[in-house]
Design a protein around this nucleic acid. Structure first.
Length: 877
RNA sequence: GGGAGCAUAGCUCAGUUGGUUUAGAGCAUCUGCCUUACAAGCAGAGGGUCCGCGGUUCGAACCCGUGUGCUCCCA
C-alpha cells in the first residue's frame, strides 16, 4: 500500500461522510437501547455558521458520537428557526433589490411565498456546513419552526395558554423597533452606554402674567416634549412648593399641563423637576397611571413624528430632535446643553434605537410558568454546566421575570389565532371556524394581522421536533423525551433555555433535558466577540478547506474549557493539523512493519529478553486503561477539552514518543507478529478514544490499519481494564532515566550518532532486566553494565536514587556535571526542608490523617536517599 | 446603581474534597539534530512573589475578608 507523505483531509472527509450516511449510522428509531437525545439549537435560516456555532456543533457531535459508541441509541435532530424579524427584513430587501417589489403592494400570501423560496435557497447553507464539519445528525429528522406540524403546534399552544388565562392582550409599555416596525420583547433589546446630551428647557408657568416665571426642566429627549402631559417635582422639594396647583406651558406647542408632586422624583437629578411623557417612558407611564394623565403618542410606527406631535409631523425622531433644539434656542427657551452618559436600548435585530412605546400587544404571563422552571434547576433535576457560573443568573431572571410580549407586526411567522368581531370582541381558537362558533358579537370576523415571536415557537423545540404537541404520546416523543443534554451559548439562557424548561414543564409536565452545557463565547485574538459587523469571524468552509474538518474541531475544542470564553487563534487549528500528521505517520510506521513480520511466538514472554517487548506492551496497556478511565470521568463532567488534551498526550507522547520507539525493531530487522498484533490493537483503541473528537481521520486510519468489516463510528467501547500501579511506576522511572541520560548527553555535546557505555550503580540489578534493552536503544548505548567503581573519565549522573556513569569517547567537563548536580541538590534540600518543617510540627503529627503523615515520611526518606546519592557523587568529583 | 465571574510561565489556559504541588500543558523562546514514520519532525533546556494585603489552619494557588484590575449580566 502506498501512503502519501502527509495526511490529505479533503478526499477522506467526503468519502467517510457519504459512507456513514449510506450505512444509516446517523439515523435513529426507537428501540430497546437507552436513548441519547440531542436537539440542535436551531441556527436561524438567514445566516452562515460562525465560530460560535462551530464550537457548539462540535461539542454536540462529540457527545453524540461518544454515546453512540457506548451502547446508546443516539439521536441528534438538526434544524433551523425562521428568525422572524431578521428574515423578513432580508426578504423585504431582496424583493426591493432584485425584483423591485414593495412589500406593501403584496398580499400576505404572496409575501410568504417569496419568503419560503428565500428560505429554501439560503437555509441549505448551514446544513452544508454542519455536514462538512462531520456532524452525525439524523438528516431524516430535519426540522424547521415553520413546518406545517410545527406551525400547528405553536397555534395549539397559544390557544391552550389563552384558555388557561396565561396569555392576554393589552396596552402596555413595550419596546418598539422603528426599523422593523414591530414590537420586541425585553430580551431583544440590548443596552449600550452612549454619550448623549441633557437639554435644559424653560417651561413658562401659566397665568404668571407679564412677569413670566419659568421653571427649567432637563431632558435627554426634547422631541418628546409634545407628548408631555404633566411636570412633576418631589413634594419635599422646597424650591417648587409655590407651584402647587399651578400649570405650566409646554414650549413650542403652547399646551398647558398640570404640575404634580411625587416622591419618585429625585431632587438631585437635573433641576429636580421632570417632564412627564407617559407614552414614551415606562416610569412616566406609571406616574401617568397613578395620576390619571392622558397618554399622547407622538411617534409613528416608523419612528417619525405623528399627528399628535402637532409639529414636525412626518420627520424622523432624530431630525425632529435637532429642529426642536434649534426652535427652543431661537425662542430663548434653551438654557444650556450638557454632555451626559446614559444607556440606550438598541434592537438586537436591526441595531436601531428602540423606542419605549405604549402599544396594544399580546403577552404571556410569566410568573406562573416560571415557578416550576425555577424549581427544576434549583432542585438539581436539570443540571447546568458550569453551574457555579449560571445558576444564579438563571434564578435571578426567573424570580424577576416580566411578562413576555409575543406579538410581532410582521408576516413571517405563525399568525396569531385571534379573531375580532366588529365590536372589537376577541375570540381565540385554532381555526376561524372554531372562532366563529365562539363568537357572540355581531358582524364579520377579522383575524389578528400579527405573528408570534420566533422564540414562542422555538421554546417548543425539544417537544415538537418529535411531534410531541401535535401528536401527544407518539412513539418518538415517549422514547426520546426528555432529551439528554442541551448544548448552547450562554447568551441565550433567557431567550431559550429558561423558556424551553417552562414549555417542557407546562406542556409535558417534564423537563426538556437533563443537562445544559453552556459553551463560552468565541472571541478574536483581541478579545472581541466575533460578529458579522466586525467581520472578525473566519469563514468555516475556508478553514475546513485549509486545515481539514478534524483539525478545525481539534483546534476549537483544545482551547475551550466549559463556559469560559475562548480566544480563537488559528494557531490551534495548525496544532490540529500537525496532530493529524502525527497519526498519519504512526500509521505509516506500523504499516511498514506489517510488510515483514517474523513468526517469533516467544516475543512476548518475559524470558525472551532480546527486545523487552513484554514490558513495553504491559506498560502501554496499563496507560491505555488508565487514560480510558480518566477520559470517561472527564466526559461525564463535560470537561471535553481536558479529555481531548489527555488523549492527545497519550497518543503523541506515550504511544508515539515512547511505546513505538520501545518496540521499534532495529534497522532491517523484523517485528515479531504478536508484538505487531498488540500494537495494532492499541492503535485501534486510541483511534476509538479519539473518534468522537476527530471522526474522519480516525475512521480512515482504522480502515487502513487492517481490512475491516465494521466501522469505527459504531464500534462499541469495552469497559476499561484495571491498572497496575507498579508497572506504571516502572514506566515512569524508565522514562526518567532515559531523559536524565539524554540530558547529560546533550549537555556534554555527545552527538546522537555516537554510542556510549552505561554503567549503573545499583543494589538491585534485577529490576533492570525487563527494561535494559529499551534503555540501551533509547540512549544509544552499546552496552549496559553494573559497576560501582567509575573511572574519572566517566560522566556521573544521578537519576532518582541511583548513580549512573556514562563512558564516552569525549573529554568531560566537570563543571557541567557539577552545575546540574548542585541545582538538583538545592531543589531537593528545599523540598526536604519543607517536609521536615511539617514532620517536626507536633500539631501536624497530631492532626493530619495517618496516610498523609505516612506519605510525608516516605517523601522524606526518598529525598534523603536522593540527596545522599548526589552528595556522594559531588564529593567524588 | 445591583449581581456574577475571572486574575497562575511571554501568550492561551489546566490545577477535581486544602496534604507526592518549592505548581502543569500547548504555543512561543533557546540549544543540538535532515537519526529509514513524521523538520507539519526528533532530543533536551530555560522560564512562575499562583494580582496586592490581612485572616482561618499543623498545612493555602485552593477556604474567608479586603483592595486593585478586567469581563459579563441586570436596572
Amino acid at each position: 500500500m502506498d501512503l502519501s507523505k502527509n495526511y490529505i483531509p479533503a478526499v477522506v472527509e467526503e468519502k467517510w461522510y457519504k459512507h456513514w450516511l449510506s450505512k444509516n449510522y446517523f439515523k435513529s428509531t426507537p428501540d430497546g437501547r437507552p436513548p441519547f437525545t440531542v436537539v440542535i439549537p436551531p441556527p436561524n435560516v438567514t445566516g452562515v455558521l460562525h465560530m460560535g456555532h462551530t464550537l457548539n456543533e462540535t461539542v454536540q457531535d462529540i457527545l453524540v458520537r461518544k454515546a453512540r459508541m457506548s451502547g446508546f441509541n443516539a439521536c441528534w435532530v438538526p434544524g433551523s428557526d425562521h428568525a422572524s424579524i431578521a428574515t423578513e427584513a432580508k426578504v423585504v430587501e431582496m424583493l426591493k433589490r432584485e425584483k423591485n417589489i414593495d412589500k406593501n403592494n403584496l398580499s400576505r400570501e404572496e409575501f410568504l411565498k417569496y419568503a419560503f423560496e428565500w428560505k429554501e435557497k439560503y437555509g441549505g447553507i448551514i446544513y452544508n456546513q454542519i455536514e462538512r464539519l462531520g456532524c452525525s445528525v439524523d438528516w431524516e429528522r430535519v426540522s424547521f419552526t415553520m413546518d406545517d406540524h410545527y406551525y400547528k403546534a405553536v397555534i395549539k399552544v397559544f390557544v391552550d395558554l389563552y384558555n388557561k388565562g396565561l396569555i392576554y392582550r393589552g396596552a402596555r409599555m413595550i419596546n418598539w423597533d422603528p426599523a422593523a416596525k414591530t414590537a420586541l420583547s425585553d430580551e431583544e433589546v440590548e443596552y449600550k452606554d452612549v454619550t448623549g446630551k441633557l437639554y435644559y428647557v424653560k417651561y413658562e408657568v401659566a397665568e404668571s402674567g407679564s412677569n413670566a416665571h419659568y421653571i427649567v426642566i432637563a431632558t435627554q429627549r426634547p422631541e418628546t416634549i409634545m407628548g408631555d402631559t404633566a411636570v412633576c417635582a418631589n413634594p419635599n422639594d422646597e424650591r417648587y412648593t409655590l407651584l402647587r396647583g399651578k400649570k405650566v406651558i409646554v414650549p413650542l406647542i403652547n399646551k398647558e399641563v398640570p404640575v404634580i408632586f411625587d416622591e419618585y422624583v429625585d431632587k438631585d437629578f437635573g433641576t429636580g423637576i421632570l417632564k412627564i411623557t407617559p407614552a414614551h417612558d415606562i416610569n412616566d407611564f406609571n406616574i401617568g397611571l397613578k395620576y390619571n394623565l392622558p397618554v399622547v403618542d407622538t411617534l409613528n410606527e416608523d419612528g417619525t413624528m405623528s399627528e399628535a406631535a402637532q409639529i414636525y409631523i412626518g420627520e424622523d425622531r432624530f431630525v425632529a430632535r435637532k429642529k426642536i433644539v434649534e426652535g427652543l434656542k431661537t425662542k430663548g427657551l434653551l438654557v444650556k446643553e450638557e454632555e451626559y452618559t446614559t444607556r440606550l436600548g438598541y434592537s438586537q435585530r436591526t441595531n436601531v434605537v428602540a423606542e419605549p412605546k405604549i402599544s396594544t400587544q399580546w403577552f404571556v404571563k410569566m410568573k406562573e410558568l416560571a415557578q416550576p422552571a425555577l424549581k427544576e434547576v434549583t432542585s438539581g433535576n436539570v443540571k447546568i454546566h458550569p453551574g457555579e457560573k449560571f445558576n444564579a443568573t438563571y434564578k435571578y431572571w426567573l424570580e424577576n421575570v416580566k411578562d413576555w410580549c409575543i406579538s410581532r407586526q410582521l408576516w413571517w411567522g405563525q399568525q396569531i389565532p385571534a379573531w375580532y368581531d366588529e365590536e372589537g370582541n376577541v375570540y381565540v381558537a385554532e381555526t376561524e371556524e372554531q372562532a366563529s362558533q365562539l363568537a357572540t358579537g355581531n358582524g364579520q370576523l377579522t383575524r389578528d394581522e400579527d405573528v408570534l415571536d420566533t422564540w414562542f415557537s422555538s421554546w417548543l423545540w425539544p417537544i415538537e421536533v418529535f411531534n410531541g404537541i401535535t401528536e401527544p404520546n407518539n412513539k418518538d416523543i415517549n422514547y426520546y423525551y426528555p432529551t439528554s443534554v442541551l448544548v448552547t451559548g450562554q447568551d441565550i439562557i433567557f431567550f431559550w433555555v429558561a423558556r424551553m424548561i417552562m414549555a417542557g414543564m407546562e406542556f409535558m409536565k417534564e423537563k426538556p433535558f437533563n443537562d445544559v452545557y453552556f459553551t463560552g463565547m468565541v472571541r478574536d485574538k483581541q478579545g472581541r466577540k466575533m460578529s458579522k459587523q466586525l467581520g472578525n469571524s473566519p469563514d468555516l468552509l475556508h478553514l475546513i478547506h485549509e486545515y481539514g474538518a478534524d483539525a478545525v474541531r481539534f483546534g476549537i475544542m483544545i482551547s475551550s474549557p466549559a463556559g469560559n470564553d475562548l480566544l480563537f487563534d488559528e494557531n490551534s487549528l495548525e496544532q490540529g493539523k500537525y496532530f493529524n500528521n502525527k497519526l498519519w505517520n504512526a500509521l505509516k510506521l506500523v504499516k511498514m512493519w506489517a510488510e515483514k513480520l517474523s513468526g517469533d511466538n516467544n516475543a512476548l514472554s518475559v524470558e525472551n529478553n532480546s527486545y523487552n517487548n513484554s514490558f513495553a506492551i504491559d506498560w502501554f496497556e496499563n496507560r491505555l486503561n488508565e487514560v480510558q478511565t480518566e477520559v470517561d470521568n472527564l466526559m461525564c463532567q463535560f470537561r471535553l477539552s481536558e479529555a481531548l488534551k489527555t488523549i492527545y498526550s497519550l497518543i503523541w507522547d506515550d504511544f508515539c514518543s515512547w511505546y513505538l520507539e520501545w518496540i521499534k525493531p532495529g534497522f532491517e530487522e523484523q517485528i515479531a507478529e504478536p508484538v505487531y498484533l498488540k500494537t495494532v490493537s492499541f492503535f485501534d483503541s486510541l483511534l476509538q478514544l479519539l473518534h468522537p473528537f476527530m471522526p474522519f481521520i480516525t475512521e480512515e486510519i482504522y480502515h487502513l490499519l487492517e481490512e475491516r468489516n465494521d466501522d469505527l463510528i459504531v464500534k462499541q467501547f469495552s469497559s476499561a481494564g484495571k491498572t497496575d500501579a507498579t508497572i506504571l511506576e516502572q514506566g515512569n522511572r524508565l522514562k526518567e532515566i532515559i531523559t536524565a541520560i539524554r540530558d547529560a548527553r546533550n549537555k556534554h555535546n555527545i552527538r546522537q550518532k555516537e554510542t556510549i557505555k552505561l554503567h549503573i550503580e545499583t543494589i538491585d540489578q534485577n529490576q533492570y532486566r525487563a527494561i535494559e534493552n529499551i534503555l540501551a536503544k533509547q540512549i544509544n548505548a552499546e552496552s549496559i553494565g553494573f559497576s560501582s567503581q567509575p573511572e574519572n573519565t566517566f560522566i556521573t549522573i544521578v537519576a532518582g536514587k541511583e548513580k549512573m556513569y556514562i563512558e564516552a569517547n569525549i573529554e568531560i567537563d566537570i563543571n557541567t556535571q557539577k552545575e546540574k548536580l548542585i541545582k538538583d541538590l538545592n531543589y531537593l534540600k528545599g523540598f526536604l526542608n519543607s517536609i521536615d518543617k511539617k514532620l517536626s510540627n507536633d500539631r501536624f503529627v497530631q492532626n493530619a490523617k495517618a496516610d498523609v503523615i505516612e506519605l510525608e515520611r516516605k517523601k522524606k526518606l526518598d529525598a534523603q536517599a536522593k540527596i545522599l546519592a548526589i552528595e556522594q557523587t559531588l564529593s567524588a568529583l
